[in-house]
Each structure stands twice: as C-alpha cells, then as structure tokens.
C-alpha cells in the first residue's frame, strides 16, 4: 500500500506519544540517574560513576542467572513452537460450534492472571493435595517441586508450556486460515503427501506469524517473573531464580537501588537488541510477502 507523505500525521500521534512518554521516558531517565549513584535515601545520593555497571557485569551470580535464563528461554521455544504448530494443524476449520469451542478453550489459559497460574500449579503439583503430585507419588516417582531443583525447574517449564503454547497455536491457526482452499485442492489433485503440503504450502504461509510467535515467546519468557515467584519463590536454592526475580530481589529485598538500576539498564539493552533484530526481520520479511 502506498502511503502519502504528510508530516501533519504527527498530530494524530501526539496523544499516544505523550501518554507513553509519561510512563516510559521519565522512569527510564530516573533509572539511568540511579545507576550512577549510591542511593542512601531520599536526597542522600552519592555519585559513583560506572562502579555499579562494573559490579553487575562481573557478578558471578548474575552470570549464572543469565545462563539459566537463556537455557530456559531456549527450552520454552524448543517445546512451544513445534507443539503450537502441531496443535494448529489439528484444529477444525470454518465457523462451526466446534471451532468456537476449541478457540475459547485454547485461549482460556491466556486470560488467567499470572499469579493465579502459579496458584493453579501450586495446588496441582503438591504431593499431598494435588492431582499431579499425588499421581506421581502413586506410581512411585519421587517428585517434589519444593525440594528438588530439577523438579522445580521442570514444573516451571511445564507451567509455561501450559500457559503459553496456546498463543503459538492461535497465531499459527491464523496463518493457516489465510491459505485459500484452492491451494489444498491443487495439492490433492497432484497427490502431494501431507508432509509436502506442510513443507511447501502451510509452513511458508505461517512464516510471518511464526516470527511474531518466536519474538513474543522469547521476550515474555525472558522476563518471566510472577509465575515462578508464586510457585517456587525462585528456589529451591537458586534453581528457578531468573533475571527478573534476581532484579526484584536486589531492588526491593536488599534495597540496592543503584546496582539494581545498572542491572535494569543492561537487561533493557539486551532485550532492546533482540527486539531490534526480530523487528527488522519481521518488517523485512513482511515487505517481501505483502503485495
């Protein structure tokens, strides 16, 4: 679509600009200010230069948290993306009651407040009162997410899969819906295998939405906070302490505001870098496909 060059369009942007700037720019500036100072209390600050940044960048525990975070995010992507595609392929098409019901059921986990997701799994996984924990116990698996690091980590992962795979599935479903039926008919006449249909018709059509799915899932899992906080509180040990948790501990728990601010900026820059790469890929691939 060819757009018209007109700088007066800025007037239409101004409300959004103001409201987001109020909520984003002022806090961001403040975080930058904090990051170069030692904060003792209101009005009692002391300039320390880049000391906090050095402390953050050489902090072993933070490196561990970062590694844990990256492994976690990659695991989330490795499970949710293929599973989401598989589910989308099995979804009924058309506007039938069956379709509506499937859509609503799939979307349900996305509408549950994050901490309630944690609560659901807390109840579900406990050995004494939870269905999952009790089942494991009954078949003789030693499962306890409050004591065992691996169990805790896996539970958080399964919880994330439970919570967010629907998003990937719905995105892929939207992509599949945009394929004209004529494509399938042609493939059928040619006797193309299911795999060929997937590889050469369905997958290319899903490319755009898949990029969005990867982007959203990466960002959100990289910032995961509430669910593990409710479920495990970051433990046992540090096994489910991800970056956000570590940051909140630092800022609220230890009141180490300067360091937390420096950490925030590094964190933000990492996310910004990934966002930019993904965004560039999305817009460039989109311009090729769209008319």
């Amino acid at each position: 679509m060819d757009k018209v060059q007109d700088n007066r369009a800025w007037f239409l942007i101004i409300p959004v600009f103001l409201i987001v700037a109020f909520s984003a720019v002022i806090p961001l500036m403040t975080v930058v200010n904090y990051s170069v100072q030692e904060i003792f209390g209101p009005g009692q600050t002391f300039f320390v230069g880049t000391e906090w940044f050095e402390a953050v960048l050489t902090d072993e525990r933070l490196h561990d948290a970062l590694v844990r975070q990256i492994i976690y995010s990659l695991a989330v992507l490795a499970i949710e993306i293929p599973l989401g595609i598989l589910i989308a392929l099995g979804m009924p098409g058309g506007r039938s009651a069956k379709t509506s019901l499937t859509l609503v059921l799939l979307a349900l986990p996305l509408l549950i407040p994050f901490n309630v997701v944690g609560t659901i799994w807390q109840i579900f996984g406990r050995g004494d009162i939870g269905l999952l924990g009790a089942t494991f116990r009954a078949i003789g698996v030693d499962y306890n997410y409050t004591n065992n690091s691996l169990d805790a980590w896996l539970t958080v992962l399964v919880m994330d899969v439970w919570h967010w795979t629907s998003l990937v599935a719905l995105l892929c479903y939207a992509g599949l819906q945009s394929i004209p039926p004529a494509f399938y008919q042609a493939a059928k006449i040619d006797g193309a295998s299911k795999w060929a249909v997937f590889r050469y018709i369905q997958l290319p059509k899903m490319r755009g939405v898949l990029i969005i799915a990867v982007l959203l899932r990466f960002m959100d899992s990289f910032m995961i906070y509430t669910e593990p906080f409710v479920l495990t509180g970051g433990g046992p040990g540090n096994s489910t302490t991800f970056l956000s948790q570590y940051l909140t501990q630092m800022a609220v728990g230890q009141f180490d505001i300067g360091k937390a601010a420096a950490f925030s900026i590094v964190y933000f820059l990492i996310v910004l870098l990934f966002s930019f790469i993904f965004y560039t890929v999305i817009t460039n691939s989109g311009s090729g496909e769209k008319k």
Binding site: I26, L28, M223, F268
Partner: peptide, 13 residues
C-alpha cells in the same frame, strides 16, 4: 520496545 521492556525495571521509578 515499551511493550518489551521488563516491567521490573520500571517498578521503583
């Protein structure tokens, strides 16, 4: 980018 900023970053300010 604001959609993608970790909310934990902005809590205190």
């Amino acid at each position: 980018t604001n959609r993608m900023a970790p909310p934990a970053v902005f809590l205190l300010p």
